[in-house]
């Protein structure tokens, strides 16, 4: 053991407050907590649906609790942040080569946004909202 061991000054639990970049990274990381909880809510919905009409309608009523409304608003904000950040890095994860050149980043990201809007509108129409 060295006589003057190197001591890390970086905090293990609060390192991401050091720089705005780290904070933005962490803001994206925590979106998975909200999306994960939301997935469990969907799973419960399928479970209640499989039980029958009364149980499913009780599930719909439970969604109207104030805590549920607050969670939905927060989850929507985090899910949107997750989508925007995901589509913005899509050109890096999914580079498309045409001939010698790669398609410009704006085309790949833009394509994702077009599909996203179209699919969202289709689902809203399908669900009877539009």
């Amino acid at each position: 053991m060295s006589r003057r061991p190197y001591l890390r000054e970086v905090s293990r639990t609060a390192w991401f407050f050091k720089r705005p970049r780290y904070l933005r990274y962490m803001a994206r990381e925590v979106t998975c907590i909200f999306i994960g909880i939301y997935t469990v809510i969907l799973l419960v919905g399928v479970y209640r649906l499989s039980q029958g009409r009364a149980e499913y309608e009780a599930f719909l009523m439970a969604l109207q609790r104030p805590a549920s409304v607050v969670f939905h608003v927060a989850a929507l904000a985090f899910a949107l942040y997750n989508s925007f950040t995901w589509f913005n890095v899509a050109p890096k994860a999914l580079p498309i080569q045409v001939g010698e050149e790669f398609l410009p980043d704006s085309v790949v990201a833009g394509g994702h946004y077009v599909v996203w809007v179209a699919l969202s509108l289709f689902i809203l129409f399908w669900a009877g909202v539009l």
């Binding site: 719909l60 929507l76 997750n82 669900a127």
Partner: peptide
């Protein structure tokens, strides 16, 4: 998740505020 989760949350949010979409 990036493509469909926001709109799914919007659908159940509508249900949560008392406007259950037809499909739900």
């Amino acid at each position: 998740v990036s493509f469909v989760t926001p709109v799914l949350i919007l659908l159940t949010l509508l249900a949560a505020v008392g406007h259950v979409p037809d499909m739900l």
